[in-house]
């Protein structure tokens, strides 16, 4: 793919997992350490990201645009946007977090991880296994040992939902 420019601005194409293409200004993707290195070193104009779903990529690009517009005067507005940004089903939030980690967008990664932590901190063990798709490798006896060790950690209203 040939490199194209409109005026001074360089344009870049990101290809999502389902081959959907996203055209955006190169300056936006520089917030991603991974993409920044690719652009700087290889002077590419199109980057395939087969492991990221298009739906996830749409969200991330939305964030990159908002973040690029961040100024001291619209800080409040940006905070509200961030709050709304992570207000999605947990599975989608995890997809975004994994992709952001891969793309190395550090500020957003910290924000996403905190959002996931806040959402799972009161969940039951079973709910957490479902959310992270983990099979338990403990026997029921071993599990009850954990419960005996620190009963207070299993007390109270635990959330069984995966959302």
């Amino acid at each position: 793919m040939a490199s194209s420019t409109t005026g001074e601005k360089k344009i870049l194409t990101l290809k999502g997992g389902d081959n959907e293409e996203f055209i955006l200004e190169e300056s936006l993707v520089l917030q991603s350490e991974l993409l920044k290195n690719m652009v700087k070193e290889e002077r590419v104009s199109s980057i395939p990201l087969p492991s990221i779903k298009s739906k996830t990529l749409v969200k991330i690009i939305e964030y990159l645009k908002k973040h690029a517009e961040l100024t001291p005067s619209n800080k409040e507005e940006f905070k509200n946007f961030e709050k709304e940004f992570v207000n999605v089903v947990l599975e989608e939030l995890l997809d975004i977090t994994v992709a952001v980690n891969y793309l190395k967008i550090n500020g957003l990664l910290e924000f996403c991880c905190q959002a996931v932590a806040d959402r799972i901190k009161d969940k039951s063990v079973e709910a957490v296994r479902k959310i992270f798709r983990i099979e338990s490798d403990f026997t029921p006896e071993e599990e009850s040992e954990f419960r005996k060790e620190t009963p207070e950690a299993f007390e109270g209203d635990l959330d069984d939902t995966t959302n």
Partner: peptide, 25 residues
Amino acid sequence: EEIVTDHILSRLPVKSLLRFKCVCE
């Protein structure tokens, strides 16, 4: 995604961690 798990779990309160120790080995 160990980095992600590591990043997320290190932000949890101790009470949650004591419970999530029995999620898996």
